[in-house]
Design a protein around this nucleic acid. Structure first.
Length: 507
DNA sequence: TCTGGGGTCCTAGGACCC
DNA sequence: TCTGGGGTCCTAGGACCC
């Protein structure tokens, strides 16, 4: 807790929905819901107009549609949001070298480290200027919290929403948060909140009264001590600019439960390859393979296997995932499958492949007649050896591989593309299907018509697609309907929200 | 039309080692 | 002769966040 409120927390207001409203004039002032549009979709973001109907993040789409049948329902366009996020993060970077992004729409900034503010007046001025700059360059509003610690800055931005700024003067935090619900403290969710309520603890002041020992008894060592400190306003966590990724994972929920064991296995293998594509894209290899299975009854289990050394070989990961699947009873059906890799090492091993392959082949030959699992293990071990040697020899293995690609940033389409590494040993897998019409013409996607110009998909079905022709700077536009295979209509990139601005989106 | 996808951190038990 | 006591790694599950 520092003496001046120089930690800033920025949170963009209803980010995905606001970006859609900014890019689609006819939706401004209207309820907009962004999220999965399939039978098992949930709300990612609801515009403030939609929130008035009771719609909120993580709500099942079906429920949202019942509450607001006339709202606009759109698929998320991550490439577009990422481009806007990049503009915002760039503005934050001008304030300080210490910027800690928490997601596409949220970040901490250490103003003191940037030398832009060392007291309340300076911090407030920097926050107000930032909000103006964000509006000018993106057309969107963000809320700013300023305080002497991360926790309080985050609480402040939440209180300031929407489109506001709140500065918590150091020394006033106890009176501000004391009477409030414990749920305002980041990290206290539904389960912890309920746990505390049953112990008679509802407000932040009551957390303080309970004392550290009681909280540790109720919540465990780490959670108990940190909650007690937070309730007292004590939080010395620094703003950290670079945080290393700890894991990479991909998962799919299926529109209908999967029962066929072969199909389940095939999906696991595809997920494993997609996961490796992302792993490599981020310049990592990893040692622990995790399989996640959500069953028909929503019960979720994970099975993991730790290899002798890190790998980014699609075959090794695929075979490990398949072995893990053998440990799982899928009777009754499966609604979600996921594959992840953790225990990440900071390099890829592309230049080690030749060695590893040669070794693995030699060993596989020696192991003829040994079960597949054992062969894969031998292969992983051979790789681990090759890697250890390379690391020892140069410590520069894989430097620069995957440059320019951030982890976890693909759109579904990009992820699909990345799912098939060029070394691709998965010839046995079916070819990627062409993008189905439902995806190509998903509601919200940008299009361009040879005669009518830029617009966006309002809806599609039974061989037709309805397009509204408007763009960020235009007046609300008109709607026209076309055949889904109309040669004059094609998908398009998002247009800049602000004249002269760049979206950076190219896909 | 009940419940996404990508993460982080913590706990707890057993194995293993000194 | 009723069993030690830590660390560390691995696995599984759960809470939480956006």
């Amino acid at each position: 807790m520092r003496a001046a409120p120089t930690i800033l927390h920025l949170d963009m207001d209803a980010f995905f929905a606001a970006a859609e409203q900014a890019s689609k004039p006819s939706l401004r002032g209207k309820p907009v819901v962004v999220g999965g549009l399939g039978p098992r979709g949930v709300v990612a973001t609801a515009s403030y107009e939609a929130r008035r109907f009771g719609i909120h993040s993580a709500m099942p789409m079906g429920q949202a549609r019942r509450l607001a049948p006339n709202a606009a329902y759109l698929v998320p366009r991550f490439t577009f949001y990422r481009a806007i996020s990049g503009q915002v993060m760039e503005l934050l970077g001008r304030l300080s070298p210490l910027v800690e992004p928490l997601s596409l729409d949220e970040a901490f900034v250490d103003l003191e480290a940037g030398g832009v503010a060392d007291d309340s007046a300076g911090a407030r001025a920097a926050g107000e200027r930032l909000r103006r700059d964000i509006l000018a360059t993106t057309g969107l509003s963000g809320s700013v919290g300023l305080a002497g610690s991360k926790m309080l800055a985050k609480i402040a931005s939440e209180e300031a929403k929407p489109d506001g700024l709140l500065l918590i003067e150091p020394g006033t935090e106890r009176e501000l948060i004391g009477p409030r619900s414990v749920r305002i403290i980041p990290g206290v969710g539904p389960a912890t909140g309920e746990h505390l309520r049953r112990a008679g603890i509802v407000t932040v002041d009551e957390v303080v009264e309970a004392g550290q020992d009681e909280l540790v008894r109720l919540l465990g060592r780490a959670h108990g001590t940190s909650l007690y400190a937070m309730a007292l306003g004590r939080d010395d966590r620094p703003v950290v600019a670079e945080r290393d990724a700890k894991s990479v994972s991909v998962e799919d929920t299926f529109d209908v439960d999967l029962h066929d064991r072969l199909r389940i296995r095939l999906e696991v293998e595809r997920l494993a390859e997609r996961c490796v594509g992302r792993l490599r894209g981020s310049g990592h290899s990893g040692r622990t393979i995790v399989l996640k299975v959500r069953r028909y009854d929503f019960s979720t289990l994970t099975r993991s296997e730790t290899l002798r050394g890190p790998t980014d070989d699609p075959v090794v990961v695929r075979e490990a995932a398949a072995r893990l699947l053998d440990l799982v009873d899928t009777t009754g059906g499966v609604r979600l499958l996921g594959v992840g890799v953790s225990g990440l090492a900071d390099y890829t091993q592309e230049d080690l492949f030749a060695q590893a392959e040669a070794r693995a082949e030699a060993q596989a030959g020696a192991l003829a007649g040994v079960p597949a699992g054992a062969r894969a293990e031998a292969r992983a071990e051979a790789q681990a050896e090759a890697q250890a040697e390379a690391a020892h020899a140069g410590a520069r293995a894989g430097a620069g591989v995957g440059a320019g690609t951030e982890p976890g940033t693909e759109t579904p389409a990009e992820a699909d593309a990345g799912a098939r590494p060029s070394e691709e040993p998965a010839a046995a897998l079916p070819e990627a299907a062409p993008r189905p019409a439902e995806r190509r013409w998903a509601p919200g996607n940008d299009v361009r018509h040879a005669a009518y110009g830029p617009g966006w998909v309002q809806g599609s079905g039974v061989g037709r697609v309805t397009v509204r022709f408007e763009e960020p700077g235009s007046a609300p536009g008109r709607v026209r309907t076309f055949a889904v295979d109309d040669p004059e209509l094609e998908p398009a990139d998002p247009l800049p929200l602000v004249p002269g601005g760049a979206t950076g989106a190219s896909s």
